[in-house]
Each structure stands twice: as C-alpha cells, then as structure tokens.
C-alpha cells in the first residue's frame, strides 16, 4: 500500500495505519537521527517528537509531496531543535541557519555513544554541512528534495555537501592510516 494511501487512512483517524508508516520509516529515521545527533538517547527523543508531530500534521500533508521527504523534514527539524537545546544548555543561542552554520560541531563530545570513525568525523562537521552530507550520501535524497526539506537552495546545498566532503576526507584518511 502506498504511503499516500496509508496517510489517507491515518487522516481518517486510523492510528494503526500511521503505525504502518512508522514501521516503514522508523529504522531509517533512527539511523539518520543517530548520525545527526551522535547518541541513541537523543535520537530516540527526536524521533518520538518527530513522529508525533508528523501525526498531528497529517492534515497538512499533500499527496504531491513524497511522504518520505516530508517526514524527514520533520525529523530533521527535531534533530535541529534537540541540538539547539543542547547548545542553549551550553549558553549559546541559536537563532537561524546563519548562526547554526557558525557553530562548530562538537556537541557529541561526552554524549556520543557512536564512536566509529565515520561518526568521529561527522561530529567535527558544522551541523548544516553534516545534514547535507547525510541527506545526500546517507539517505540518498536528490537535491531537489533536499531543497524542499531544508529550505536552502540547490546550489547552497551542493556547496555544503562539497565542503563536508572536503573537510572529512583528510580526517578519514588520517584515521585509516592510524588504525
């Protein structure tokens, strides 16, 4: 059954139909949230909020949008909010994308439970670069969809992905040499 059909059922009040959508996407979204946030606990919190938000927002979902992209946008926003809350706890105020872009990505230190080489490199990326890289190379989204999800332009997203790659490459090579 297509996502749109399950959404229709869920909108009619069938929470179990939404449960099927959860079944379909929970694992992938978990993977994304864990790579974004670096630890299981935060990822689970973000997913709880995201799926409940998605359920509440079903009335605003349009069939012309791919459900997966629509859902990931909500997950992405929750990851951003959670990361921003961590920053606020460290007395930093995050107002907008520009500010986010300036924040070094070190929030996982001490809270990370994912410690493979990839995560170590991802953690060092600025959040917006990490987002773009994960959406493109981790989750396989096209740039057009990423633009809808993030609100950024396609050229901006391509630049973020390129910068993420350029930054990560030497870190990963260094880790491989030292392994």
């Amino acid at each position: 059954m297509t996502d749109a059909a399950l959404v229709a059922q869920a909108r009619a009040g069938d929470v179990e139909a939404f449960g099927h959508l959860v079944d379909r996407y929970y694992d992938d979204c978990t993977r994304f949230a864990r790579r974004m946030l670096g630890n299981r606990h935060d990822a689970e919190d973000a997913l709880q909020e995201a799926f409940v938000n998605a359920y509440q927002a079903l009335a605003r979902y349009h069939e012309r949008d791919a459900f997966r992209g629509w859902l990931y946008r909500i997950v992405l926003n929750e990851c951003r909010r959670l990361a921003a809350r961590r920053w606020r706890n460290e007395r930093r105020l995050v107002h907008d994308d520009v500010t986010l872009e300036r924040l070094p990505g070190r929030e996982e230190n001490g809270a990370a439970d994912l410690r493979d080489q990839l995560q170590t490199s991802l953690a060092r990326l600025e959040p917006l670069l990490r987002e773009a890289l994960l959406l493109k190379y981790g989750e396989g989204f096209e740039y057009t969809e990423m633009a809808r999800m993030t609100g950024a332009s396609i050229p901006a997203l391509k630049m973020r992905v390129k910068r993420a790659r350029d930054q990560m490459r030497p870190w990963l090579e260094e880790m491989e040499e030292n392994a």
Binding site: M1, A5, F67
Partner: peptide, 15 residues
C-alpha cells in the same frame, strides 16, 4: 503493486 514506499500517487486516491 505499489506496496513499497513510493513517490506520490496520482491524485484522488481512495477518496
């Protein structure tokens, strides 16, 4: 057919 996660369906659906 169409059981896998898929791009948007054509308009109308089951309504």
């Amino acid at each position: 057919l169409g059981d896998a996660p898929a791009p948007p369906t054509s308009p109308g659906g089951s309504h």
